[in-house]
Each structure stands twice: as structure tokens, then as C-alpha cells.
Design a binder for these strands. Structure first.
Lengths: 208, 208, 208, 208
DNA sequence: GATGAATGAGACTTCATTCAT
DNA sequence: CATGAATGAAGTCTCATTCAT
């Protein structure tokens, strides 16, 4: 019982491009400010300033909106990591990890609630839907990071380490924007996240 | 417009106790095996073998079911941590952390999906509802742990560390049961989680 | 992509029995008096004096209503033919055919439009739906009729004759109630239908 | 609340003619192959290779498409009967009837489903719409046939006979293409239809 | 207390039709 | 004239909750 979630129609005219964009922006806004309870196709269309019909012209169903937003976010995260891994971008592992963490924090700062909700909604139809794998594997990226800075890394099982690091960073970034501890600035949280990762991965140093 | 979510009445008789229990077990089972989409009051009542009417006799609304399950899980986690902190239970920080991680993994192993869903369902009405704080503060527990083993801990900002550790452990335990890396046994995952926490918290040692 | 059309729930209490009956009566009435355009689940529920929810408690979807009505009509026709075939009911083929035609005309007289619409609606989802074969084969019944009165029948290919007779009678009965020729009484139409069938089937006689 | 269903404008230019034709062909094809559910103006336009807007340039609404197809089919049937009645075309009643039946079978063979659907769609808005009587009366044609071969016809009430014959032929032709009995060739069906009609109309002969 | 039939607001989605480009 | 994006009324169906028995 698969459900299609890919875009129903490719917008050709500039007008439709704008409509699609408006719908996605509205979807994100509704999710962020009104919660998943209020996330109805009619409400999204209303906020987008278009009719429900227009929404369905470009998205076959409500889930497709979630998928599109999720995909969009996934690509952004991919870009952040990719940038941190770019040739010669960062000399040390710590610098690279810091860049990733900083990028992710920035990407989640504006609409923190959105990403939490998105994750839940996306997971909730993961199976019924032929959710197109966003195509990129975050673990692979982390493993590349570890390989590139192999000299500084002490963990033996790199795949296990990639798993641990990916989930840790993800969780702490979300926690940083959604449930930050009192009175800490973002910089402090960024530092803590980097510390957790580095302490685990890197050979002990005297620093810190 | 607050919504009551506390149990509608305290069941005094044994039969009522059993009914409430059956409903909660059914709720957990539906959430675990059939997903949040199927989580309807009628379905829960059916699985519990009672009528919807009876369900509403003990729970004022659907959210109360989620709250009850969430609360129940919270208490269980509390107990796990409490045990690990019991006087003289564990000599070293590593042992104490390992005990906590082991306990949490065990508590999540049976119904992993349940806890993921629960968390999001609970969060989704966090605000509209006057969700009674389950009364215990996980951070406080972690801070107690750090204080007790202060000698082994090097981090300066203990509250920040508690925040980081609590979220890290929570995320990795969930990931361990829901999205474990291929071919690693639970013991390996447990080890990795402890490693992440210890590397961050403890003064460097030669171990590992 | 099968669609279920069988009753969703078996009504157990007397109250539900009445509800189901009211819904079917309302469905027939709407189809007959307001046409298939007006045949919406809300309208049917309204005419039945119940809520849409009740309708869906007993019929999984709109099509199930059509199927139920169709089935009901099929059984009635079956009964008519069965009665005409009952042992010793009719001495001659003409009498038997006349009995069938009379019975069918009576059965269609009250709600002629209903049966026309029903047929169309039923046919329109014949394939998408796993329409339960009403279980009885009208051809078989006609063949039995021909066999029983074999002495009077001259047609060689009985199966072909059954096909022709079944469709002819069906069409003329419908036409008789829906588009009768001007100023003919029902008796005259009944006679004409029997004449068409008998002239085709029976050995020529001097009668008429 | 009458609704206009006649062509919105008479296409004068060749290109317009072609567009109208393409639309009608597409409408027939959709109805035949995809069913009345799929018969949407957008789908018809798509299959016709034109925009919806263009469709509405030539047809004021969806019903007009049905009317046009129905009308077209009616004219074709009229032609078939007219040919069979042409002066000196057929010497005997049987030959004339056979010609009509053969012509009708041929006309329905290509798109059998289309005609069934058409009939019901047409009937479904017969009243709301001021459906222009297609202008020719099939009964009149049949009566002419009976009059011309009066010598061979034994039935007394010619109008009643025309009614019976018209409906019988119509039903059997449709049945022949839509629900033919197993393993009979079209010739056999044609023969059976002619037999039914002739046995009813004509004076008994020794033939057959 | 228990039952389960009934309710009905409201969510999702379609499609005939219009109109700016 | 053609295009196709946009509209929105209307229809199907679900499910939390109530209440007569």
C-alpha cells in the first residue's frame, strides 16, 4: 500500500515556482508556530495565501509536504557537513567538528520546533510510505571525517564511533535549541558538544 | 483552556486496578505494534478487552493515556538511576554509569518503538495541557552522580555537563534499540555509550 | 487495490438492526427520488435520521451501500424465479414465464429508477471492488426453467437461449416501468414480454 | 435551472474542427478505457492533447461532452436503420432486421463499454438538463419497418411491438458485446437476436 | 459500573470551472 | 485563441467523546 510522495507536477512557470515555495514556507511556519495539531492542508494553504487546490496541484498529499521539508533539511545538513570536509577547510579534527556543530546549530536555531516535529511526523509514516531515501548517508560522511583525520583518532571501531558521534551530535544540537540549560550562551553549548565528541574520538591531550 | 490529564478516579477495588492496568498495557502494545496512527481510544479499549466507555471511566481523555505511560516510564528510569546511585553500589564512576546505561538499555529493549512514539506524542501536547511534571528531575540525578564521584570528574561546569550527559545517554540508548549499527551486539553498544560519557567526564586514564 | 464492501460490523442489538435498516431504506429512497448525484453519504444519513458516523459504523464506504442494495435486489429476483420454478407451481412454460415476468414487474414497480441507477453504480466499480458475487446465477435458473419444460422448448442451443431470454426479460421489465409506451396498461406490457419470450422459445402453436 | 449543453460555438476553421474532433475522440477513449471515474475534463483535455481552457472553448461544460457523444452515437444508429430501410434494400423482414442487427453490432463492437457508460451518464442528467432531443425517434423507425413489411407481420398492436422490439434489440446488442455467452461467435449472437425478433413479429414459418 | 451505539466536527482530497498571461 | 495555474465548494471518511440502556 505505497503512497506517492514525490511532487505531483513540476512547476514550469515562475508563478508556480513561487506558489510551491510559498506552500513550503507556510508548512514550515505552521509546524513551527502552531504545532502538528494545526498542521492541516487547509491551514497550510491559508497561511501560504493559496487555495487548497493549489497545494494539491504540487503535493499529492499532506505527507508529501513533510517529506519535502525533511528532504530540504537533510540537504542543508549535508551541505554543512560537506563544507566542513572541504579540502583544506580545517586543519584539525577539533576544528572540523566545531565547524559542523556550529553549522548545525545555526541551521536549527531559527525553527527549532520545526525540526523536532518534522522528525516525528516523518518517522510516523516511514513505512507506509515509499519515502525516497534522501540519498545521502550521514554515517558515511562522519566516517569520511574520521578517516581524513585518522592520525588524531584513537577509536578502533570507526563505524561504531560514527554511529555514536552522529547520534550524539544530532541529539545535543536539538537539545541546545529546544531545551538548553539555563543561562548558557550558545557558544558554551557549542563548546560542550565539541568537547563530548572530541573527548571520545581523539587521543587524550593536555588541552582543555 | 487547560485540559485535565490526571487519572479521573483512583481505582480502589482490585477489579478496577486490573482494568486500568489492562488499558495501559493495551495502550503500550498498540503504540508499539500498530503505531500512533492506530492509537485510537476505541482500538485501545478493544485490545484491552473493555468497552470505550470503561476506558473513559478511568482516563478523562486520550492524552491521559499518553501521560500515564510517559509517567510510568519516567518512574522506571528514575528507579534505574536511583539504584545505580544507591549507597556503595558502585565504587567508580565508570561502574555507576555502566549500571545506568545497562539499566536503561534493558528498559528500552522490549518496546523500543513505544518510547520513541511516546516521547513525541507527549511533547505534542506539552503546552496545551497542564502536564503534571512527572516530579523528578533527571538532571538533578545526574548532578548527584557527578558530585558523588567528584574526584574522578574533571569537567568544571557540572550543570552543563549534566545536560550534555543526560541528553547523550538518552539519545544513544534510544538509537541503540531503534537504529543500532549493523552487527554490533548490545554489549558493544553499551560499551560505546559508556565510553562517550566517560571520555567526556572523567580525567584521562590509561584504560581502554 | 481491493476495497472492502462487506458489512463492517454485525449489528447485535435491536437498535443497531433498526439503524442498518433505516440506512438502507434511506439509500434506496435517495437513489430513487433524488438521483445518483444526490447520493452522498451525508444525505443518506440525513434521510435515515442518523449521523454519518453511524452509517460508517455499518458500511465501510459508500460503495458498500450500493452493494447491499444490489444484493438485496438480487436475492428478491432470485426468490421470484425460484417461486415460479417450485414443484408443480406451473403446468406450462407460458405460465411459468408469465409468473416470472409478473413477479419481476411487481418488484420493479415501486422504485423503478432505483434499479436503473443501482445497476449503473454497481457496474461502475465492479472491477476495483471485490464485489462479492451475489452467489446465484440467473442463467442457471433460466436453464433450469428450459430443462423442466423441455417438451415445449424448440430452441437447440439452450445456453444461448438462456442468455437471450435473461437479457430480454431484464430489459423489457426495466423498460416497462421506466419508459412504457403510451397508454398501455401493465397487463398489456406483461403480455408483450411473455409473447416475445414464448414466441422465441416455444414450438409454434395456433394460439394468439 | 436549465443548463446549456449545446456546443458553445460552431467551429468554422479547420483547426477548430480538428480540436473538437480530438476532444470527442479523447472523451470516448477515456470513457471506454478508464471508466467514468476517470472521466474528468482535465483528463479528457490531457488525452486530447489540448488545455482544459481549449476544451471549455468548445464545450460549455462536462455534460456537453456526454451529450455530444450520445448524439453522435444516436445519429450513427439512425443511419444504420435508415440504410436497412432504404428502398429495395431488403426483400424480406428477416433480411431487414438482420441488416439492422448486424449494423448495430458492428457499431458497438469497437467501444462496447463506452456505450454502456454513455447511456447511464446521459440518463443521469436527463432531467436537470434541457437535453436536446436528438431529434429522431427510434420507435418511428421501427414502426416504419413494420409497416413496410406489413404482410409478414402478425402482431396487432404495432406500437407496442415497436416498443418491445426496440428495447429487445438494444439490450441484446449491448449484451452481445459486453456480456456474451461463452464460446459463441458474433454470428451466432446475431442469429439469436434476429430469431428473437422474428419469432415475435413474423407469422410462423417452417424455417429454422 | 459497564457497554457499545451514536454523534458530528473536522480532516483530507477531488475536480469542474475560471481567468490572467 | 490557447494555456495551465488557481480556485473552492463539496464529498468521503475518521475518531474522540457521550449517553441511553
Amino acid at each position: 500500500m505505497d503512497k506517492r510522495v514525490d511532487a505531483r507536477k513540476q512547476p514550469r512557470q515562475a508563478r508556480s515556482q513561487a506558489t510551491v515555495e510559498a506552500i513550503l514556507v507556510a508548512a514550515a511556519r505552521v509546524l513551527e508556530r502552531e504545532g502538528s495539531r494545526a498542521f492541516t492542508t487547509n491551514r497550510v494553504a491559508e497561511v501560504a495565501g493559496v487555495s487548497v487546490g493549489s497545494l494539491y496541484q504540487y503535493f499529492p498529499n499532506k505527507e508529501a509536504l513533510i517529506v519535502a521539508l525533511h528532504d530540504r533539511h537533510g540537504r542543508a545538513m549535508h551541505r554543512v557537513i560537506g563544507d566542513a570536509l572541504a579540502d583544506g577547510a580545517h586543519a584539525t579534527l577539533r576544528e572540523a567538528v566545531a565547524a559542523v556543530v556550529r553549522g548545525m546549530l545555526a541551521a536549527h536555531a531559527d525553527e527549532p520546533e520545526l525540526h523536532r516535529v518534522l522528525e516525528h511526523e516523518y518517522a510516523s509514516f516511514d513505512e507506509r510510505t515509499s519515502a525516497p531515501d534522501t540519498g545521502f548517508d550521514i554515517y558515511r560522511e562522519v566516517r569520511r571525517l574520521l578517516r581524513r583525520h585518522a592520525g588524531e583518532v584513537r577509536v578502533a571501531d570507526r563505524e561504531l564511533a560514527a554511529w555514536a558521534v552522529a547520534h550524539t551530535v544530532h541529539a545535543l544540537v536539538h537539545a541546545a535549541v529546544l531545551e538548553p540549560p539555563r543561562r548558557r550562551r550558545r557558544g558554551a553549548l557549542e563548546g560542550a558538544i565539541v568537547d563530548v565528541v572530541l573527548a571520545y574520538l581523539a587521543v587524550p591531550s593536555t588541552s582543555r
